[in-house]
Design a protein around this nucleic acid. Sequence first.
RNA 1: UCCUCAGUAGCUCAAUGGUAGAGCAUUCGGCUGUUAACCGAAGGGUUGUAGGUUCGAAUCCUACCUGAGGAGCCA
Length: 440
Amino acid sequence: MSVETAAPRITIAEAGKHVGETVSIPGWLYNLRRSGKICFPQLRDGTGVIQCVAVKSNLPEETFEALKNLTQESSLIVTGKLREESRAPGGYELDVEQAHIVQRVPEDDPYPITPKEHGTDFLMDHRHLWIRSRRQHAILRVRAEVIRAIRDYFDSNGFVLVDTPIFTPAACEGTTTLFEVDYFEDQKVYLTQSGQLYNEATAMAFGKTYCFGPTFRAEKSKTRRHLTEFWMVEPEMTYADLDDVKKVAEEMIVFCVRRVLDNRRAELKELDRDVSKLEAIQAPFHRMSYDDAVVKLQAKGSEIQWGGDFGNADETLLTEDLDRPVMVDRFPTGIKAFYFETDPNRPEVALGVDVIAPEGYGEIIGGGQRAHSLDVLLKRLEEHNLPKEAFDWYLDLRKYGAVPHGGFGMGVERFTAWMCGTEHIRETIAFPRMLYRTRP
RNA sequence: UCCUCAGUAGCUCAAUGGUAGAGCAUUCGGCUGUUAACCGAAGGGUUGUAGGUUCGAAUCCUACCUGAGGAGCCA
């Protein structure tokens, strides 16, 4: 059963197509300005905000009084005629003829988030309401666009979506950063930190696959770039080498940036995002070896030595003079996970690649070519002190038709933060999970 | 885990060791074109918690709690 309205029901986003018509719009009171015998309720409905005009002399007494004294975020259905209006924010205005108040927010317990400024702690405590605000609303719409673009890219380029489990029996890579969960019969399982090992199995079955879902990292990282629960897309390709991985990463990023620019212009404007920075994201990206990156960083004053991993400041330094992402490859084997293929000409470097976004957004993609020889993998497990038995099924992939293959993982929130130009990753997911925050 | 900063009205913030303040929000009054409207008035406080110094503490000291920023860690 659908909700009854006095006139044909439309959304605010559709207002332009109904100028001159009498329509009903269900929504919530975003803000209200009034002046004696006229008032301007601003209605939001999730698709936009529209200013309404209620004039005392044109309305029944109780309708005007109800509107004039309405409280912020009260739910209501307004009915009236739409017209273009240059004075109204948004360009269209609705002359109220009827108003049905669905639920009035009581004034002794008013909506806590006013149009004025608030602090981080307060807003995070009210995250369930904060997502109604224009800025948060815009960010989450960009996120949805990013996710849709990612899916479209892989779906239309021969990748098959095969999702991997969230409960996993052991570490994919390291061991210390896993959330442990009680399973039946005193068993322990862990929340996935990457679907990659399973992706390697599915890619051997389908050729090209990807998984896309939540990922969990029990790292005690307290930075503006870390969540304990985040969404990651991970493609995996067979008969592919490091260059193939880099090419797909580059193509996918350009595709997603284009989609955001094409479809979420209004949201980027709401966020005051400098879109020229995003227009500049074109192939080819900058390409650089780890060796050259270390030299460049040292020249810029970094303390980094060959063999060390980049810090946050290093990533920013590396891209500060660049207008598009940089792909850094061939990292020291020692700082990469056990499953990376090594360079046949230089066993001391791994065939991994990080894609580092400009403007200080840091690593958005990590990936590379996987070791595909059984002997190499066995040796590597030993070097990393990992139990061979836990990886028996994974090692099967090297016994039964091993081929060169590779892939990468991209964090959706970091990518969205980059698109939106947000300071902190916590705004790019509806209900962020962080080191010291799991509510609401 | 470490470093730094912060905690005062529902919110954002003021207040030389000496009477607890403003704006917004709420309530009441005014205004027929407002743009985070404006004008007038009212209500609203155990200054994060527990100790200590002092004639006197929001202010100084100690511990703890909470939060923020950063470091480390980080596929």
